[in-house]
C-alpha cells in the first residue's frame, strides 16, 4: 500500500541524504555516532532473519541495503572522517537504551524464541535510537539543514507506517501490536522535532532550537 511504500522510500532517502552529506562535506559534524551505532544494531538484529526467512526480492534487497549502509556510515564516522569535537558532545548513555530494549524484548515478544526476541529488541531499540542525535541537537542548539532533512526523513518512515498498519488492519485483519506500539513511541519522540522542523526548516529559517 501507499503508506508502506512511502515509508520505505523515506527510509531509503534518509540514508542517501546522510551518505551524501558526509561524502560531499567530507565531515560528520553534528551527526551522532551513537545513534548510527544503534541503527547498525537495529538492522542487524531485525534483518538477520533474511538468512532463514524469505519474503520477497524487494524485502531482501532493502534489508541488505540497510545493513550494509549503516555499517558503512559507522565506518566512515570512525575511520574516515573522525571528528573529536562532535564526539565530545555525543554523550548520551546508550547502554540504558540497549539494556532497556533488551529487557522489554524479553517481556514483550510473539514467542520466547531467539529470532522473535531479536525482532522485538530491534523494534524497541529503533523507537529510541534517535535520542542521542536529538540530544546532540539540543546541546548544540542548531544543525545543518541537511542533517535536519535526514532526521525528518528517518522519522517520517515510522510515522508513515502507522497509517500502513491501520490500512492492513482493515484490509487484512493483520495487527502487529509490537510494531504499532513501538512505532507510536518513536513518532512521539520525533514529534517535537517534527514541529520545529515544520516551523523553521520548511519556512526557510535556520534550524535553531527555541
Amino acid at each position: 500500500n501507499i503508506f508502506r511504500a512511502a515509508g520505505d522510500l523515506s527510509h531509503l532517502i534518509s540514508i542517501l541524504i546522510l551518505l551524501n552529506t558526509i561524502q560531499k562535506s567530507r565531515s560528520i559534524a553534528g551527526i551522532s555516532l551513537k545513534t548510527q551505532i544503534l541503527y547498525v544494531l537495529v538492522f542487524l538484529t531485525r534483518y538477520l532473519d533474511l538468512t532463514y526467512r524469505y519474503v520477497s526480492i524487494y524485502n531482501t534487497l532493502m534489508k541488505l541495503f540497510f545493513i550494509s549502509s549503516s555499517i558503512y556510515i559507522v565506518y566512515l564516522m570512525i575511520y574516515k572522517f573522525k571528528n573529536t569535537e562532535t564526539e565530545q558532545i555525543d554523550t548520551f548513555p546508550i547502554e540504558y537504551l540497549i539494556g532497556g530494549s533488551f529487557i522489554l524484548s524479553l517481556i514483550f515478544n510473539y514467542k520466547f524464541q531467539f529470532g522473535e526476541i531479536l525482532w522485538s529488541f530491534s523494534l524497541w531499540l529503533e523507537s529510541v535510537a534517535i535520542l542521542p542525535q536529538l540530544f546532540m541537537l539540543q546541546r548544540t542548539g542548531e544543525a545543518r539543514t541537511l542533517t535536519t532533512h535526514y532526521i525528518f526523513a528517518l522519522g517520517a518512515y515510522r510515522t508513515l507506517y502507522i497509517p500502513n498498519w491501520i490500512f492492513r488492519w482493515i484490509s487484512e485483519g493483520r495487527v502487529d501490536y509490537l510494531a504499532i506500539f513501538t512505532g507510536i513511541v518513536q513518532t512521539i519522540i520525533y514529534s517535537d522535532f517534527f514541529y520545529i522542523y515544520y516551523h523553521r526548516v520548511l519556512k526557510g529559517f535556520k534550524f535553531e532550537l527555541p
Binding site: 526467512r53 519474503v55 534489508k63
Partner: peptide, 10 residues
Amino acid sequence: KSDTLDHDEL
C-alpha cells in the same frame, strides 16, 4: 497460518 506473526515489513 503460523502462530507467530509474519514479519514481512522493514
